[in-house]
């Protein structure tokens, strides 16, 4: 086989992969997906889902009410966006120090098939100790994502594996569980930390519920 024909095959292969990715995208997140764009997460008190944290405890949205919360979706087989978000969050928490103490920081997987409780435990262990990892049955993940208006979808990759597209924003809630704001992926730290501070200090208009 000449180098030229190897290249030809390589191009055909890449074209096939790109097509697969585009088709997957169309179905799960593209125009073929249910319309959710532009919606804000509902209040935590209006959400309903049952998941398991990385220490095996049963958890749900009620665990996030009483203290301000920071929640984001991802998966541990994610090489680029998720470790970057997790280390960004770790950096923000370091910057905030004691101020962020008691804040709920939760990473919810969108890939429960591979992200078991054990996988989540190992993974979150590499980041800030406040970060909790939640997983659970696919239907419960879907209910959680619905409440946060987060989107995700499975996309096949080269070699028969798959990756996940997912909302990469970080959601902030005040201690009452009301949505405060979100931090978009790529947002500079000088914007992120004040946003977290706002969620932390937001007047709750009454006593905490815990």
């Amino acid at each position: 086989m000449t180098r030229r024909s190897i290249l030809k095959y390589a191009f055909a292969g890449i074209a096939a992969i790109v097509l697969t990715l585009v088709v997957g995208w169309w179905q799960v997140d593209g125009p073929g997906a249910p319309e959710q764009a532009g919606l804000r997460p509902v209040a935590l008190s209006e959400m309903e889902f049952r998941l398991t944290d990385h220490e095996g405890n049963e958890v749900g949205p009620e665990n996030l009410i009483g203290s301000p919360s920071m929640v984001f979706f991802g998966f541990t087989y994610c090489p680029d966006v998720c470790p970057t978000t997790l280390s960004d969050i770790s950096g923000w928490l370091d910057d905030l120090g004691e101020e962020a103490e008691g804040m709920n920081v939760v990473f919810i997987t969108v890939d429960p098939e591979r992200d078991t409780v054990e996988a989540m435990a190992e993974y979150v262990g590499y980041f800030h100790p406040s970060i909790r990892g939640w997983t659970g049955p696919e239907e419960e993940i879907a209910r959680a994502a619905q409440g946060f208006r987060a989107r995700y979808g499975r996309v096949p990759t080269e070699g028969g594996d798959y990756t996940m597209n997912h909302t990469a924003s970080v959601f902030l809630f005040d201690a009452k569980g009301r949505f405060s704001t979100m931090i978009d992926y790529h947002e500079p730290r000088e914007f992120a930390v004040p946003k977290i501070r706002r969620a932390l200090n937001r007047e709750t208009g009454g006593q905490h519920e815990n």
Partner: peptide, 28 residues
């Protein structure tokens, strides 16, 4: 990352680097 905040990744194909330019492979 699209306008709805959804991140995805795909093969980038060949990457051309113009004279005097650089391309950064960086998170995100």
């Amino acid at each position: 990352t699209n306008a709805d905040g959804v991140s995805s990744m795909a093969p980038a194909g060949e990457i051309e680097i113009a004279p005097g330019e650089s391309v950064s492979l960086e998170p995100g």
